[in-house]
Computed example of a mutant assay.
Amino acid sequence: MHFFRLFFRCFIFVVLTILTQIGGMAYLLSLFATRVMGMSRFSARILVFLLFYAAATFLANMAAPAFGRVPLSCFAGEGDKMMVRSALYCALNRNYVTPRMRDLVAALSEDMDEKFPGTTTVVLDGNFPFIDGFPLLPHLSHADGRKLDIAFYYKDADGYFVDGVTRSPIGYFAFEQPRAGDEQPCEGRKDIITTRWNFDWLQPFFPSYRIEEQRTGFALQWLSTVGAKQFGLEKIFVEPHLRNALAASGETIRFQGCRAARHDDHIHIQVR
């Protein structure tokens, strides 16, 4: 029984650390606190953990700049032109980037709204607050604060732009499927070890929004020109069929490879 309890606690520690980076440590501290205070009720233990986790998240916001990272705010105001897609990203500490990346996405969102008034730029996964090389699963490269995913801009079934909305509730896995004749470098491959998941069973559950071509195309072109020149952007990952459809060009626009996740549900950017 004792061994099972120890194994279970180790498992919880590992899972929380993988998911949030700081959650495992908050869990250990909560175990110590509840033992000292003699708390045995499950609800009390959960509450203590949540308090420790909230405190750790707050302290991470304060301490991250010392490690070269800053949080993107999940509390967008009325006048803000950029928003994190879901508070879940902040709750899991996945909203951290370098100051250069923060400045880049802020400038992109301002220029997008100037070009297309009433446009909000939606961002997705960034990085954890601490330690270069700590993996942000399931991503292969979000481990140093220099990477950020940006959602596509969408229009509804009638062709009208929908602001601050994505097809997927979290911004991922709602793919823009290539058409017959489109460039598909991974067609026919059957890699065993891969994160290029298609989730065909999931696609019918998403609304019938489609990419808003003008805004998404402008964003890609802005990133490959202004972003590269002024903010040190060095890589943009997007699927070839979308790059072609949006007439986006530039040496920074690349294909991520066939073992990495699909990039026809979001745009991945990276700065130096």
Rank of each mutant, 00 (worst) to 15 (best):
G227D: 00
G227H: 01
A107V: 02
F130M: 09
V238E: 02
P240A: 13
R189D: 11
A260R: 13
L59N: 02
T34K: 12
R9D: 13
M1W: 06
M101K: 08
L47A: 08
I12N: 01
C10I: 11
L148P: 00
G133M: 10
L51M: 14
A107I: 04
I269A: 03
G232H: 04
T20P: 08
Y53M: 12
G145E: 03
R259I: 09
H266V: 00
F173T: 14
T194C: 13
Y27L: 10
V165C: 02
D158C: 12
A54E: 13
G133W: 12
L242Y: 03
G181H: 09
Y89V: 02
C74N: 15
Q184E: 04
N244M: 14
G133V: 12
F237V: 14
F8D: 01
L104M: 11
L246R: 06
E183P: 05
E183Y: 08
M101T: 14
Y53A: 10
G77Q: 07
H241Y: 02
E234G: 11
A228G: 02
H266M: 06
G188C: 11
L148N: 01
L233T: 01
D149S: 11
D163W: 01
H241Q: 03
G159Q: 04
E213A: 07
R272A: 12
V122P: 00
F206N: 10
V238I: 15
F206K: 10
M82L: 14
V36H: 04
A157C: 10
D200V: 06
I46W: 11
